[in-house]
Amino acid sequence: MTEILDFIRTNLELIYIIILIIFIGVEVIKHIPAVLHTPLMSGANALSGVVIVGAILVMLHADPENYLALSLGFLAVVLGIINVVGGFAVTNRMLEMFKKKK
């Protein structure tokens, strides 16, 4: 119990931010028309590729001799950036299709 209270005390700001962002996320997406379900999902998917920032940090912090960390980090960067680039590119392609038929 005390650990939980301690956790809340030390991370209070973080908890506020998380809760507020959840509400922002819900409000921003609410009432989205069905036509945009796929582009939204694929755009959000690209956004979740923000883990790439963490992957880059892993590599920046890694000891140049630590080949395990470097290779795991390398793979994480490659996969993360595929998620980002592929996700945004394919969303753009989809929206391009939606646009031209107007």
Binding site: L14, I21, G25, L40, A44, N45, V50, V53, G54
Partner: peptide, 16 residues
């Protein structure tokens, strides 16, 4: 930026 990006995707995905 990771926190906000991630949570946005998390809540948007849940709504969908």
């Amino acid at each position: 930026v990771m926190l906000i990006g991630g949570i946005l995707v998390g809540s948007a995905g849940l709504i969908l």
